[in-house]
Amino acid sequence: MAQESETPLLAVRDLRTWFHTFSGVVKAVNGVSFEIGEGEVMGLVGESGGGKSVIGFSVLGLIDSPGRIEGGEILFDGEDLAQAGEERLRHIRGRHISMVFQDPMTSLNPLHTVGRQMDEVLRLHTDLGAAERRKACIDMLESVGISRAAERLKAYPHQFSGGMRQRVVIAIALLAGPRLIIADEPTTALDVTIQSQILKLMRRQIAEKGASMILITHDLAVVSEMADHITVLYCGKVVERGRTRDLIESPAHPYTRGLIDSIPDPAARHDRLRQIPGSVPDIRALPKGCNFRERCPRAQALCAETEPDLTKQHRSLWAACHFPLVPGDVQ
């Protein structure tokens, strides 16, 4: 399904999005590059505060003061969105690239009916008449699994449950037929039982519409089910990327290994869940050398000296590590 095309749909190159706060410059995204082909799903993984969401907002030009895109390119279909004006971005948002937010309880306007919030997208981005738009909204609501759709158009968000609201949000994101969907932790705020329903729904819709998706999450288990490729972020930088299977089966970066090990495994009866020791360093005052070395079991003197570059590893993997893991390593 996922075909590597010559020109990727989205190519982010050396993106740097910094926040100029009172207590210093937060380099939330600092030199991130990745590509997504047509119809591909890419997982963007990392701990909280790792700059995952900022990448999503950067692509859509939704970084607010004191944040700023300091440099890099965001090539969408060959056009650099980092240089695009607000008016151009407005036409791309919702039409070509749309977004699904983390918390469905807060991402819908509580004072507008669901129908109005859906209609708004079509009104802005299509030439359809009122009746056609209504029909499109009803069809879309039904296809995301909401019954009695015509009635539900008149309902307000508070009359829906969390899972239903996220379905509405997804319907809104899909409505104008975008080529790329950025889903920012789309299931984090939902019950576990609802999570898998929503993920299945998203996977099916993406496949049907032939759209691409960036799935932003801290949950490796979720991306490993959904994504073709995974990019792992740490302190605003890519530490590892590659095909999902290669990365999950035998990661090259010790951080990725740590993330995988901290997924609860019902088969193995550990006394305690494995975790990565320590915590993410203060991003305003990063140490010299590798950002992960203080938490890394493989760190050596070199790691404190120079920061590793992203280099080719085994199979499809690229990792930024001086002492990468190779298949067969036992940690």
Binding site: F57, L60, L62, R90, H91, I92, R93, G94, R95, S98, M99, F101, S107, L108, N109, E120, V121, L124, H125, V169, I172
Partner: peptide, 8 residues
């Protein structure tokens, strides 16, 4: 922000 992400 969601409204802006819709292109409003």
């Amino acid at each position: 922000k969601f409204a802006r992400a819709k292109g409003v």
